[in-house]
Design a protein around this nucleic acid. Structure first.
Lengths: 137, 137
DNA sequence: TATTGTTATACTCTATAACTATA
DNA sequence: TATAGTTATAGAGTATAACAATA
């Protein structure tokens, strides 16, 4: 088993997951990538664009483009940071939170499929390995 | 550890790998995605667009766009299939093969990093899990 | 009828570079 | 000086739908 085999398996797994997610989010006018942004906001309530870019593994310009699209649909809002006037606080609107929860429920089965074949210890080990890869490269 | 944690770890790992690869292929005028197509052709000598789309986890229209870009740079060529006249046989040109090998060597370290933290049994198990995910979803 | 590939089209993601403003 | 974000711009990947040619 080579590094290329591993890289390809990673690619195919991610892209397949991404496509499946896209198919489940599309009805709400949201892409899989935008859903990832919404999920980060659902966890943290409000984040700066910089923090969002870090968490979603997106470039700051790319992240801004996604936030603008979400803002146009009134799924997120931006408010000035109380202390640092360079920063926007991005958060889900009530409508955005509602749509997020709807998509979250619809993608539940997909997430369960991801876990279905492994013990919880194996999942922990697996995620830990993925994070080590990311840190290493 | 949740399914969402796993999905995010998969995303971040893949996108990081993709970016690192892009940085190493760019000097030759090739994207990471195009490099994946070239790698499939390097293994198999010649493939139909359909087979290429399957192996690289790309849509047939997307795949065609990538092949056209590679063809414009004279890195791949298309010849008619000897028996099935619907099919193009896509293959690397001598120049394409040379560029592929150059990039392959340059990305060697990256692939080694992927394997560095695991025993060869663990790598096999890991890839097997990734493939099971893909098949399951 | 099913499959391979093409065309036309539109949108999203991606990212570089130069910029403003704030810290 | 460094950081957060913006603007302009360009390209690449993504995918749908309608289509032609061939099996």
């Amino acid at each position: 088993m080579t590094g290329h085999n591993l890289a390809m398996a990673l690619r195919v797994a991610y892209l397949t997951l991404h496509r499946q997610t896209d198919a489940l989010t599309a009805a709400e006018g949201v892409t899989a990538d935008q859903f990832v942004v919404m999920a980060a906001l659902a966890e943290e309530n409000a984040l700066s664009q910089r923090e969002l870019a870090d968490r979603t593994a997106a470039d700051r310009n790319t992240l801004r483009a996604m936030v603008v699209l979400l803002e146009q649909q009134r799924f997120v809002q931006r408010t000035p940071h109380p202390r640092d006037r360079r920063v926007w606080c991005v958060s889900l609107t009530p409508g955005g939170r509602r749509v997020f929860r709807k998509i979250w429920r619809r993608t539940e089965t997909l997430r369960e499929e991801l876990l279905a074949r492994m013990s919880s210890e194996d999942v922990t080990a697996f995620v830990s390995l993925l994070r080590q890869f990311t840190a290493a490269i």
